[in-house]
Design a protein around this nucleic acid. Sequence first.
RNA 1: GGAGAAAUGGCAGAGUGGUCGAAUGCACUGGUCUUGAAAACCAGCGAGGGUCACACCUCCGGGGGUUCGAAUCCCUCUUUCUCCGCCA
Length: 423
Amino acid sequence: MLQVSYIREHKEEIIKRLAIRNLDSKALIENVLTFDEERRQLQTKLDSAKAEMNTISKEIGNLFKSGEVEKANTLKSKTSELKETIKTLEEGLSEKAEGLKIELYKIPNVPNPLVPKGNSDEDNLETLREGEIPTLHKDALPHWELAKKYDLIDFELGNKITGAGFPVYKGKGARLQRALIAYFLDKNTSAGYTEYQLPHLVNEASGFGTGQLPDKEGQMYHVTGDNLYLIPTAEVPGTNIFRDVILNENELPIGVTGYTPCFRREAGSYGAHVRGLNRLHQFDKVEIIRVEHPSKSYEALDGMVGHVQNILKELKLPYRILRLCGGDLTFASALTYDFEVFSAAQERWLEVSSVSNFETFQSNRLKLRFKNGEGKNQLAHTLNGSALALPRILASILENYQTEDGINVPDILIPYTGFDKID
RNA sequence: GGAGAAAUGGCAGAGUGGUCGAAUGCACUGGUCUUGAAAACCAGCGAGGGUCACACCUCCGGGGGUUCGAAUCCCUCUUUCUCCGCCA
């Protein structure tokens, strides 16, 4: 959520930069400013009405104390009108405040100047491509066939137990999952991130904190009996660690990493592109989250990109980095880099990580601040990224590392799997 | 799940209807003193709104109510603690 004060002071610039997202925000911005203006006017009126009430109340107290009951009662009868005024003003104020909030919720983050113009993923800017795309043997299979052939993942069993999109990993498939999680966590902690084990269900307040609520409610599984939500990403519990927190400047930066399963309803997505591990209702992901000083957040973003890059290099997977265009940028992000790995048998690039700087967009909602050098509370910047999401990494390992007589395990993972070949 | 107790500033902890945004201690910041540090002493020290700046308004777990007036009384929700039950 953008700060109203920022909108007030940078109106034209914001409108101009939101156009990068193909968003004509003029009316929206005007609306916000109108609500804000009206809200402040009512606030001022309400404040002075309350001040008057406070004065009278004090006076009444004093009159009672000095035994002037008559006078006190006269004064008392005067308050009813004032009370009515206050009530009306309060109602008007909360209406305006609510209206302001609703409008603010509609405005996405202002893109960083680096964000290219564009409408869809086709306009994303490829900034780097690295790694060798393997030449597969003639009978090479896509990962869902490989999973079946080597008995690594049982999709049908998942259908039986739960439903589509809840695969069952078994044997070496399960072990490979565990190996990847352990490897990712090790990489992240040695880069300075503190490992957390976080709840997989969150309350409403957390949903609002990271912006899944109120708009994206339909994307999460909702446990209605207890009004809790299954997390769609560790970003939700991980970032809400810092909800309503005021840090000391010297505590920055903070790095958090955690493995969680992620639950997404993904309503309405079916078809060839969601086969196998490509899109699931439940999947595993290791996330990295940073809280940064505003002056350092872009440096930190580059650092995170380098970190993810390093992991993909170690796994020897062919990958590319994309700087997302305005049309593909997520609502809360100011700048996002996507990582895609080439899945040789499907002959497709698969998104495996998304690294973003949210600047103050999340922290404004979260009320995540730090005490700056002047002793003032200032919103911190938040960033996060996947390091990494498992299913498509697994898919591309299976596909890219397949040979005629089995699937090789990437060298870096062998200490974690305890085997070097799936056959 | 049942019974009881509680929730106040970074922490501890006073405060049961008016002068309380809130005593006191600790922590923290600045100063005096000191070669330096410690101690001692002095001062400052929660958050949000509002204002050019003041004034002013709001916040004592969340929400609602009673009252001229609520940290204090009532209702409700949440959380914590103790006991019982259940349990990996």
